[in-house]
């Protein structure tokens, strides 16, 4: 197995007025293809900072970050944008859909910035993704017309559209009730079963329990890093789902 994400002695410091805050202190970590990692820790432990680093939204103060065999710790802003659009998928706590766009248009956005011409083929793919997450009958709805769970499913579909190496989820169930949380987690689990690498930040043990590997952080350092042998039972329909997702993403769009 190859490490799709590898960070070495990653340090991130902020200057807040005259004080230097060390959010990450020489963190090293490797995540392999197909893993499902939960990043846990109290607030201020550096888990969000680490996720931002992994998401190429920021550059480290020192250390190296190798994403899919490319060192991305010292590249310029435009290249970072390109990396995000090609190799990463984001799922946020507050869904972060664009309110002016319909479901399908929201799913299309990463393709546009990836340098893909939007055509019938890409549209077809977005529609299929929407169907895959169970929103086939809401293609032209605006985010405002959807429930929280539905919005998060659109966000999941959007994170998949560019067939990313890694899906980064920041408290994906933070705004959802327990029943819809379960739905979303089942979906993420299914994605993982289909081979997607997922790194998820959460502070809830219930949610972390879905992951195969749990990393706990404290004071900008990794405290514990263990496999979760009692990971929750997989959905019984997983096989069918992962088959259709694989075939969908296998189709070249460029």
């Amino acid at each position: 197995m190859t490490a799709v994400v590898r960070i070495e002695k990653l340090t991130k410091e902020y200057r807040l007025e005259s004080v230097t805050v060390r959010a990450l202190r020489s963190v090293s970590l490797a995540v392999e293809q197909g893993e499902f990692v939960a990043l846990m820790g109290p607030s201020g432990s550096g888990k969000s900072t680490l996720l931002n680093q992994l998401g190429c939204l920021d550059r480290p103060t020192s250390g190296r970050y190798i994403l899919a065999n490319e060192d991305v710790s010292r590249i310029d802003d435009d290249r970072l944008s390109e990396i995000r659009s090609k190799y990463l998928g984001f799922i946020f706590q507050s869904y972060n859909l664009l309110p002016q766009y319909t479901v399908v248009e929201n799913i299309e956005v990463p393709l546009l910035y990836q340098g893909c011409r939007l055509n019938d083929k890409t549209r077809q793919r977005c529609v299929q993704l929407a169907q895959l997450v169970g929103l086939g009958d809401r293609l032209d709805h605006r985010p405002m017309q959807l429930s929280g769970g539905q919005q998060q499913r659109v966000a999941i579909a959007r994170s998949l559209v560019n067939d990313p190496h890694v899906i980064l989820a920041d408290e994906p169930t933070g705004n959802l009730d327990s029943r819809t949380s379960d739905e979303v987690m089942q979906m993420l689990t299914k994605l993982n079963d289909a081979g997607k690498t997922i790194i998820m930040v959460t502070h809830e043990n219930d949610i972390a329990a879905w992951a195969k590997r749990i990393i706990r952080m404290r004071d900008g350092q990794i405290e514990t890093d263990e496999q979760n042998v009692r990971a929750k039972v997989r959905h019984e329909m997983a096989g069918e789902f992962s088959a259709s997702l694989s075939s969908l993403l296998a189709e070249a769009i460029r």
């Binding site: 435009d78 390109e82 995000r84 659009s85 984001f90 972060n96």
Partner: peptide, 16 residues
């Protein structure tokens, strides 16, 4: 601002 953040996260360059 938030929309800008979302677009940037999804791969929009500054020029976009």
């Amino acid at each position: 601002t938030r929309e800008i953040g979302i677009r940037r996260a999804l791969g929009a360059k500054r020029a976009d």
